[in-house]
Design a protein around this nucleic acid. Sequence first.
DNA 1: GTGATTGTAATTTATGTAGTTACATGATGT
DNA 2: ACATCATGTAACTACATAAATTACAATCAC
Lengths: 151, 151
Amino acid sequence: MKISTRFSDSIHILAFINIYQGIIPLTSSNIASSIETSPVVVRRLMSALNKAGLINTVHGAADPVLAKSPESISLYDVFLAIEGDAHLFTIDERTNPQCIVGGNIQETLNGFYQQAEIAAKAKLARISLQDVIDTIRVKQAIKDAEKERRN
Amino acid sequence: MKISTRFSDSIHILAFINIYQGIIPLTSSNIASSIETSPVVVRRLMSALNKAGLINTVHGAADPVLAKSPESISLYDVFLAIEGDAHLFTIDERTNPQCIVGGNIQETLNGFYQQAEIAAKAKLARISLQDVIDTIRVKQAIKDAEKERRN
DNA sequence: GTGATTGTAATTTATGTAGTTACATGATGT
DNA sequence: ACATCATGTAACTACATAAATTACAATCAC
Protein backbone atom coordinates (compact mmCIF):
# COMPACT_ATOMS: atom_id res chain seq x y z
CA MET A 1 0.00 0.00 0.00
CA LYS A 2 1.14 3.29 -0.81
CA ILE A 3 1.09 6.15 1.60
CA SER A 4 -1.83 8.43 0.81
CA THR A 5 -1.55 11.93 -0.53
CA ARG A 6 -2.27 13.17 2.99
CA PHE A 7 1.46 13.12 3.64
CA SER A 8 2.29 15.16 0.55
CA ASP A 9 -0.60 17.51 1.19
CA SER A 10 0.62 18.14 4.72
CA ILE A 11 4.09 19.09 3.56
CA HIS A 12 2.42 21.33 1.01
CA ILE A 13 0.45 23.05 3.76
CA LEU A 14 3.52 23.65 5.91
CA ALA A 15 5.52 25.06 3.01
CA PHE A 16 2.59 27.24 2.03
CA ILE A 17 2.26 28.68 5.52
CA ASN A 18 5.93 29.58 5.57
CA ILE A 19 6.12 31.05 2.08
CA TYR A 20 2.86 33.00 2.01
CA GLN A 21 2.63 34.18 5.60
CA GLY A 22 2.02 37.94 5.62
CA ILE A 23 1.43 37.94 1.87
CA ILE A 24 -2.05 36.49 1.61
CA PRO A 25 -4.49 35.36 4.32
CA LEU A 26 -3.67 31.80 5.33
CA THR A 27 -7.18 30.37 5.25
CA SER A 28 -8.02 26.74 4.59
CA SER A 29 -9.67 27.97 1.43
CA ASN A 30 -6.58 29.72 0.08
CA ILE A 31 -4.36 26.80 0.94
CA ALA A 32 -6.84 24.41 -0.67
CA SER A 33 -6.62 26.41 -3.90
CA SER A 34 -2.90 25.74 -4.07
CA ILE A 35 -3.29 22.01 -3.49
CA GLU A 36 -6.42 21.93 -5.64
CA THR A 37 -8.46 20.11 -3.05
CA SER A 38 -11.28 21.08 -0.72
CA PRO A 39 -10.92 23.34 2.33
CA VAL A 40 -12.24 20.57 4.57
CA VAL A 41 -9.39 18.29 3.62
CA VAL A 42 -6.96 21.08 4.49
CA ARG A 43 -8.66 21.73 7.82
CA ARG A 44 -8.53 18.06 8.73
CA LEU A 45 -4.81 17.93 8.04
CA MET A 46 -4.15 21.25 9.80
CA SER A 47 -6.01 19.94 12.81
CA ALA A 48 -3.71 16.92 12.93
CA LEU A 49 -0.62 19.06 12.44
CA ASN A 50 -1.80 21.29 15.27
CA LYS A 51 -2.32 18.34 17.62
CA ALA A 52 1.13 17.05 16.73
CA GLY A 53 2.62 20.41 17.68
CA LEU A 54 3.93 21.33 14.24
CA ILE A 55 1.71 24.36 13.77
CA ASN A 56 -0.41 26.56 15.99
CA THR A 57 -3.96 27.11 14.86
CA VAL A 58 -6.72 28.99 16.59
CA HIS A 59 -10.29 27.81 16.36
CA GLY A 60 -12.15 30.41 14.37
CA ALA A 61 -9.12 32.40 13.30
CA ALA A 62 -7.07 32.21 10.14
CA ASP A 63 -3.30 32.49 9.74
CA PRO A 64 -1.81 29.44 11.43
CA VAL A 65 1.89 29.68 12.23
CA LEU A 66 4.63 27.09 12.29
CA ALA A 67 5.21 26.02 15.88
CA LYS A 68 8.89 25.41 15.21
CA SER A 69 11.48 26.65 12.76
CA PRO A 70 11.42 24.98 9.32
CA GLU A 71 14.94 23.69 10.01
CA SER A 72 13.68 21.73 12.99
CA ILE A 73 10.67 20.13 11.31
CA SER A 74 11.62 16.95 9.48
CA LEU A 75 9.55 15.11 6.91
CA TYR A 76 9.45 12.25 9.38
CA ASP A 77 7.85 14.55 11.94
CA VAL A 78 5.16 15.26 9.39
CA PHE A 79 4.81 11.58 8.58
CA LEU A 80 4.35 10.73 12.24
CA ALA A 81 1.79 13.49 12.68
CA ILE A 82 -0.33 12.35 9.75
CA GLU A 83 0.25 8.65 9.28
CA GLY A 84 1.17 7.70 12.82
CA ASP A 85 2.51 4.17 12.94
CA ALA A 86 1.22 3.24 9.50
CA HIS A 87 3.35 0.73 7.67
CA LEU A 88 4.78 1.03 4.18
CA PHE A 89 4.38 -2.70 3.62
CA THR A 90 1.35 -4.85 4.34
CA ILE A 91 1.36 -8.30 5.90
CA ASP A 92 -1.52 -10.77 5.73
CA GLU A 93 -3.36 -10.97 9.01
CA ARG A 94 -4.36 -14.59 8.65
CA THR A 95 -2.14 -17.30 7.25
CA ASN A 96 -2.41 -21.01 8.03
CA PRO A 97 -0.77 -21.62 11.43
CA GLN A 98 -0.60 -25.36 10.69
CA CYS A 99 1.92 -24.69 7.93
CA ILE A 100 5.60 -24.07 8.58
CA VAL A 101 5.49 -21.11 6.22
CA GLY A 102 2.06 -19.83 7.14
CA GLY A 103 2.79 -20.13 10.82
CA ASN A 104 5.98 -18.10 10.76
CA ILE A 105 5.88 -15.82 7.75
CA GLN A 106 4.13 -12.94 9.48
CA GLU A 107 6.70 -12.49 12.22
CA THR A 108 9.50 -13.10 9.75
CA LEU A 109 8.39 -10.52 7.22
CA ASN A 110 7.59 -8.08 9.97
CA GLY A 111 11.23 -8.11 11.02
CA PHE A 112 12.59 -7.64 7.52
CA TYR A 113 10.04 -5.01 6.55
CA GLN A 114 10.96 -3.02 9.62
CA GLN A 115 14.54 -2.81 8.40
CA ALA A 116 13.39 -1.32 5.12
CA GLU A 117 10.93 1.02 6.76
CA ILE A 118 13.46 2.29 9.24
CA ALA A 119 15.87 3.00 6.39
CA ALA A 120 13.22 5.04 4.62
CA LYS A 121 12.12 6.86 7.76
CA ALA A 122 15.72 7.67 8.67
CA LYS A 123 16.05 9.40 5.31
CA LEU A 124 12.85 11.34 5.90
CA ALA A 125 14.14 12.33 9.33
CA ARG A 126 17.15 13.97 7.69
CA ILE A 127 15.12 16.09 5.29
CA SER A 128 13.76 19.29 6.80
CA LEU A 129 10.89 21.53 5.85
CA GLN A 130 13.56 24.15 5.18
CA ASP A 131 15.10 21.81 2.58
CA VAL A 132 11.71 21.55 0.91
CA ILE A 133 11.18 25.32 0.97
CA ASP A 134 14.67 25.99 -0.35
CA THR A 135 14.15 23.57 -3.21
CA ILE A 136 10.81 25.11 -4.09
CA ARG A 137 12.34 28.60 -4.18
CA VAL A 138 15.26 27.50 -6.32
CA LYS A 139 12.97 25.80 -8.80
CA GLN A 140 10.81 28.91 -8.92
CA ALA A 141 13.86 31.14 -9.45
CA ILE A 142 14.90 28.99 -12.38
CA LYS A 143 11.45 29.35 -13.92
CA ASP A 144 11.50 33.11 -13.40
CA ALA A 145 14.91 33.39 -15.01
CA GLU A 146 13.71 31.35 -17.98
CA LYS A 147 10.76 33.66 -18.39
CA GLU A 148 12.94 36.76 -18.13
CA ARG A 149 15.34 35.37 -20.70
CA ARG A 150 12.52 34.99 -23.22
CA ASN A 151 11.55 38.66 -22.96
CA MET B 1 -0.98 4.04 -0.14
CA LYS B 2 0.52 1.01 1.27
CA ILE B 3 2.06 -1.74 -0.80
CA SER B 4 -0.55 -4.46 -1.24
CA THR B 5 -0.31 -7.93 0.24
CA ARG B 6 0.73 -9.16 -3.21
CA PHE B 7 4.31 -8.56 -2.22
CA SER B 8 4.04 -10.53 1.01
CA ASP B 9 2.06 -13.27 -0.70
CA SER B 10 4.73 -13.63 -3.36
CA ILE B 11 7.47 -14.10 -0.80
CA HIS B 12 5.20 -16.61 0.89
CA ILE B 13 4.85 -18.53 -2.36
CA LEU B 14 8.58 -18.63 -3.00
CA ALA B 15 9.34 -19.82 0.53
CA PHE B 16 6.61 -22.42 0.27
CA ILE B 17 7.98 -23.80 -2.98
CA ASN B 18 11.41 -24.16 -1.45
CA ILE B 19 10.32 -25.69 1.85
CA TYR B 20 7.63 -28.07 0.62
CA GLN B 21 9.11 -29.20 -2.69
CA GLY B 22 9.08 -32.98 -2.83
CA ILE B 23 6.97 -33.16 0.33
CA ILE B 24 3.54 -32.25 -0.94
CA PRO B 25 2.32 -31.40 -4.47
CA LEU B 26 2.98 -27.74 -5.19
CA THR B 27 -0.38 -26.82 -6.66
CA SER B 28 -1.92 -23.39 -6.56
CA SER B 29 -4.55 -24.90 -4.32
CA ASN B 30 -2.10 -26.23 -1.74
CA ILE B 31 -0.16 -22.98 -1.70
CA ALA B 32 -3.39 -21.01 -1.36
CA SER B 33 -4.27 -23.04 1.74
CA SER B 34 -1.10 -21.85 3.42
CA ILE B 35 -1.72 -18.20 2.58
CA GLU B 36 -5.44 -18.63 3.19
CA THR B 37 -6.43 -17.04 -0.07
CA SER B 38 -7.84 -18.35 -3.33
CA PRO B 39 -5.93 -20.46 -5.87
CA VAL B 40 -6.54 -17.87 -8.56
CA VAL B 41 -4.69 -15.22 -6.59
CA VAL B 42 -1.77 -17.61 -6.24
CA ARG B 43 -1.77 -18.44 -9.92
CA ARG B 44 -1.76 -14.79 -10.88
CA LEU B 45 1.23 -14.13 -8.67
CA MET B 46 3.04 -17.25 -9.85
CA SER B 47 2.45 -16.15 -13.41
CA ALA B 48 4.15 -12.84 -12.65
CA LEU B 49 7.02 -14.53 -10.82
CA ASN B 50 7.45 -16.82 -13.81
CA LYS B 51 7.58 -13.93 -16.26
CA ALA B 52 10.12 -12.20 -14.05
CA GLY B 53 12.32 -15.27 -14.16
CA LEU B 54 12.15 -16.07 -10.46
CA ILE B 55 10.38 -19.41 -10.84
CA ASN B 56 9.71 -21.82 -13.67
CA THR B 57 6.14 -22.91 -14.10
CA VAL B 58 4.61 -25.12 -16.78
CA HIS B 59 1.16 -24.44 -18.13
CA GLY B 60 -1.01 -27.33 -16.98
CA ALA B 61 1.53 -28.89 -14.68
CA ALA B 62 2.03 -28.50 -10.95
CA ASP B 63 5.29 -28.26 -9.00
CA PRO B 64 6.92 -25.00 -10.02
CA VAL B 65 10.61 -24.69 -9.16
CA LEU B 66 12.74 -21.74 -8.17
CA ALA B 67 14.63 -20.50 -11.22
CA LYS B 68 17.56 -19.37 -9.09
CA SER B 69 19.03 -20.30 -5.73
CA PRO B 70 17.30 -18.76 -2.69
CA GLU B 71 20.56 -16.95 -1.91
CA SER B 72 20.42 -15.12 -5.21
CA ILE B 73 16.79 -14.01 -5.00
CA SER B 74 16.43 -10.77 -3.07
CA LEU B 75 13.25 -9.30 -1.68
CA TYR B 76 13.80 -6.41 -4.07
CA ASP B 77 13.76 -8.86 -6.99
CA VAL B 78 10.37 -10.01 -5.77
CA PHE B 79 9.20 -6.43 -5.31
CA LEU B 80 10.21 -5.56 -8.86
CA ALA B 81 8.49 -8.65 -10.24
CA ILE B 82 5.20 -7.90 -8.52
CA GLU B 83 5.02 -4.16 -7.98
CA GLY B 84 7.22 -2.99 -10.83
CA ASP B 85 7.98 0.69 -10.47
CA ALA B 86 5.24 1.35 -7.94
CA HIS B 87 6.03 4.11 -5.50
CA LEU B 88 5.88 3.93 -1.73
CA PHE B 89 4.77 7.55 -1.49
CA THR B 90 2.06 9.27 -3.46
CA ILE B 91 2.26 12.74 -4.95
CA ASP B 92 -0.73 14.80 -6.08
CA GLU B 93 -1.04 14.86 -9.83
CA ARG B 94 -2.57 18.29 -10.02
CA THR B 95 -1.57 21.24 -7.88
CA ASN B 96 -2.01 24.89 -8.76
CA PRO B 97 0.81 25.86 -11.17
CA GLN B 98 0.09 29.57 -10.51
CA CYS B 99 1.30 29.13 -6.94
CA ILE B 100 4.96 29.07 -5.97
CA VAL B 101 4.30 26.04 -3.80
CA GLY B 102 1.79 24.31 -6.04
CA GLY B 103 3.94 24.86 -9.08
CA ASN B 104 7.06 23.29 -7.64
CA ILE B 105 6.02 20.89 -4.89
CA GLN B 106 5.60 17.87 -7.12
CA GLU B 107 9.12 17.89 -8.53
CA THR B 108 10.50 18.78 -5.11
CA LEU B 109 8.81 15.97 -3.23
CA ASN B 110 9.59 13.54 -5.99
CA GLY B 111 13.28 14.10 -5.41
CA PHE B 112 13.08 13.72 -1.65
CA TYR B 113 10.77 10.72 -1.79
CA GLN B 114 13.16 8.97 -4.13
CA GLN B 115 15.87 9.21 -1.51
CA ALA B 116 13.65 7.46 1.02
CA GLU B 117 12.47 4.86 -1.45
CA ILE B 118 15.97 4.02 -2.58
CA ALA B 119 17.02 3.56 1.03
CA ALA B 120 14.17 1.12 1.59
CA LYS B 121 14.76 -0.75 -1.66
CA ALA B 122 18.47 -1.01 -0.94
CA LYS B 123 17.60 -2.77 2.30
CA LEU B 124 15.25 -5.13 0.48
CA ALA B 125 17.98 -5.84 -2.04
CA ARG B 126 20.22 -7.06 0.76
CA ILE B 127 17.67 -9.52 2.17
CA SER B 128 17.54 -12.84 0.34
CA LEU B 129 14.87 -15.48 0.08
CA GLN B 130 17.33 -17.71 1.92
CA ASP B 131 17.30 -15.25 4.84
CA VAL B 132 13.52 -15.52 4.91
CA ILE B 133 13.59 -19.32 4.78
CA ASP B 134 16.26 -19.51 7.48
CA THR B 135 14.25 -17.25 9.75
CA ILE B 136 11.09 -19.28 9.19
CA ARG B 137 12.92 -22.50 10.05
CA VAL B 138 14.46 -21.05 13.18
CA LYS B 139 11.13 -19.76 14.40
CA GLN B 140 9.57 -23.14 13.73
CA ALA B 141 12.39 -24.91 15.57
CA ILE B 142 11.78 -22.70 18.57
CA LYS B 143 8.09 -23.59 18.53
CA ASP B 144 8.88 -27.29 18.24
CA ALA B 145 11.30 -27.10 21.14
CA GLU B 146 8.68 -25.33 23.23
CA LYS B 147 6.18 -28.03 22.45
CA GLU B 148 8.67 -30.77 23.29
CA ARG B 149 9.52 -29.10 26.57
CA ARG B 150 5.90 -29.14 27.64
CA ASN B 151 5.65 -32.93 27.13
C1' DG C 1 -8.85 -39.77 -23.49
C1' DT C 2 -9.96 -38.46 -18.82
C1' DG C 3 -9.00 -35.72 -15.05
C1' DA C 4 -6.23 -32.40 -12.92
C1' DT C 5 -3.74 -28.02 -13.37
C1' DT C 6 -2.24 -23.64 -15.06
C1' DG C 7 -3.23 -19.07 -17.27
C1' DT C 8 -6.27 -15.39 -17.71
C1' DA C 9 -10.38 -12.60 -18.39
C1' DA C 10 -14.58 -10.76 -16.40
C1' DT C 11 -17.34 -9.84 -12.48
C1' DT C 12 -18.36 -8.98 -7.75
C1' DT C 13 -17.14 -7.60 -3.18
C1' DA C 14 -14.57 -5.16 0.25
C1' DT C 15 -11.85 -1.50 1.84
C1' DG C 16 -9.70 2.78 2.18
C1' DT C 17 -9.42 7.54 0.83
C1' DA C 18 -10.87 11.85 -1.08
C1' DG C 19 -14.55 14.93 -1.57
C1' DT C 20 -18.99 17.00 -0.03
C1' DT C 21 -22.45 18.76 3.01
C1' DA C 22 -23.76 20.45 7.26
C1' DC C 23 -23.26 22.68 11.40
C1' DA C 24 -21.46 23.92 16.00
C1' DT C 25 -17.84 26.77 17.98
C1' DG C 26 -15.00 30.61 18.18
C1' DA C 27 -12.70 35.00 16.30
C1' DT C 28 -12.83 39.55 13.95
C1' DG C 29 -14.41 44.08 12.71
C1' DT C 30 -17.55 47.72 12.86
C1' DA D 1 -23.93 43.49 20.08
C1' DC D 2 -24.13 41.85 15.74
C1' DA D 3 -22.88 40.19 11.30
C1' DT D 4 -19.37 37.90 9.02
C1' DC D 5 -15.91 34.76 8.49
C1' DA D 6 -12.95 30.94 9.98
C1' DT D 7 -11.92 26.58 12.18
C1' DG D 8 -13.12 21.82 13.89
C1' DT D 9 -15.58 17.77 13.10
C1' DA D 10 -19.16 14.50 12.06
C1' DA D 11 -21.84 12.14 8.57
C1' DC D 12 -22.39 10.88 4.05
C1' DT D 13 -21.21 10.13 -0.94
C1' DA D 14 -18.15 9.04 -4.65
C1' DC D 15 -14.36 6.83 -6.31
C1' DA D 16 -10.23 4.04 -6.77
C1' DT D 17 -7.72 -0.01 -5.65
C1' DA D 18 -7.30 -4.66 -4.56
C1' DA D 19 -8.94 -9.18 -3.21
C1' DA D 20 -12.09 -12.87 -4.04
C1' DT D 21 -14.98 -15.34 -7.12
C1' DT D 22 -16.61 -17.39 -11.39
C1' DA D 23 -15.75 -19.20 -15.70
C1' DC D 24 -13.26 -21.30 -19.20
C1' DA D 25 -9.56 -22.25 -22.60
C1' DA D 26 -5.03 -24.38 -22.92
C1' DT D 27 -1.90 -27.80 -21.33
C1' DC D 28 -0.01 -31.68 -18.94
C1' DA D 29 0.05 -36.46 -16.71
C1' DC D 30 -1.27 -40.99 -16.34
